[in-house]
Design a protein around this nucleic acid. Structure first.
Lengths: 226, 226
DNA sequence: ATGCCGGATATTGCATCCAATATCCAGATA
DNA sequence: TATCTGGATATTGGATGCAATATCCGGCAT
């Protein structure tokens, strides 16, 4: 029986993968950058084996591109692919939201409300790194009541990629007034049990994020002369 | 420049992962079965390292469940989860089919037709292992024209799981007359450019497969006393 | 100058070995 | 009998070292 304070022990590859994931999402490891196993091994003060496993793991997640005998590089998506990622999010998130709304209890609303405040708090505090995290958690909280393990697992995978690009342009993304309003309205519609209204708004919300983000990335890449 | 006959060199972990994937899909490695690294290493005549990497890879794909210091077991999904897998397929496949139909050229129709014949051929030949493969390939061929790399990648991942359960009950699944007719009709609708009709039929087709398969798995598990 | 060759260097791939952890089982204890 | 304990065994985790492969770079021919 697992004690109440049992700490689930993580293996080295797990811990290293988590850390590298954050470093990629935060942009510390830039698009296209080559990843040297030996270097990371020294940074984490371990041998190359656990680093290798962590990298292979991230490669399976699609964050790292792997080439035999040449090692890994941080993945870079085309604008097309980034668009597709958002389209996949729409398909899955709207489905989850539809299923969640009829099941939501007060506890769910409270949890969403809490995250919403956090997010609104980070607007003022200008806490850039926190907002991205809160935004993702808020979206997932909206779907918690759907009770769909597999869908959420796949959504986590997909969101990993979209979040990465959102975070890069975070200072702009979080300013968007309509998006802020969407977030609150989504919760209101859910509270009213308005499945159709919620589905429509969520689709529009993600669609708008997609359009605005793609524009910014396109501009940035043009400036970088690509 | 890569020669026309260049064989892309695979690493040991890749080759082993492919082989193990087939062994799991074919049912040779059964649900819940523990996987011993040393044993596999001997079978493939390599050390445990490449086997380890292959298993971690399959674990990232969701075919193998990994527990620290205890190794891997072949994953077993609940009926709920299997249902979800089919629901995800519906979301993504219908979206892909909608996008593909307007783009399909004669070459696409020919490719689908070829796979359809293969599949129909395997009905008579009673080639069980071939049918599962052809069925999957046929579905993917229907969406080839959609030109959506990410979506197809995710679909491959999801289908991996549904195909596994379809294959277990293959001898029954491939007999189903309505499904056979669906396959041909899908192609006809696509040829007519009937996006709505195609989308509706595809959804029904997958939905029916889901229902029938879930019944069979439920019955089988009841018999196994679970 | 440009392109090609070959050796030096950097890096990854994998086998082997030892340490850490889990599992099994016989004997002790209540 | 049921449960606990500790040590023997099985199994995984990770460090090290060597082989295989890729990359870099200077000299040579054109």
């Amino acid at each position: 029986m697992a004690g109440r304070r049992a700490v689930k022990k993580q293996s080295l590859p797990e811990m290293i993968a988590s850390d590298l994931r954050q470093r990629i999402l935060s942009g510390e490891l830039a698009e296209g950058e080559a990843i040297r196993q030996e270097l990371l091994a020294k940074e984490y003060d371990v041998s190359r084996m656990p680093v290798r496993e962590a990298l292979k793991r991230l490669s399976a997640e699609g964050l790292v591109q792997w080439e035999n005998n040449r090692g890994g590089t941080v993945i870079k998506h085309s604008l097309r692919e980034i668009g597709e990622i958002f389209d996949l999010r729409i398909l899955i998130e709207v489905d989850l939201f539809r299923r969640a709304i009829p099941n939501m209890t007060q506890a769910d609303f409270d949890a969403c409300e809490k995250l919403l405040s956090e997010m609104e708090g980070s607007y003022e505090a200008d806490d850039v790194s926190q907002w991205g995290q809160s935004n993702h958690e808020y979206h997932m909280a909206l779907y918690a009541a759907a009770d769909r393990r597999m869908s959420k697992e796949f959504l986590e995978r997909i969101s990993l990629h979209s979040d990465r690009y959102v975070r890069i342009h975070l200072s702009v993304m979080k300013q968007r007034q309509p998006a802020k309003e969407d977030h609150r309205k989504l919760l209101e519609l859910a509270a009213k049990g308005d499945v159709e209204g919620g589905a429509v708004l969520l689709q529009k919300h993600i669609e708008r994020t997609k359009t605005e983000l793609l524009e910014m990335i396109a501009k940035q890449r043009r400036l970088a002369g690509e």
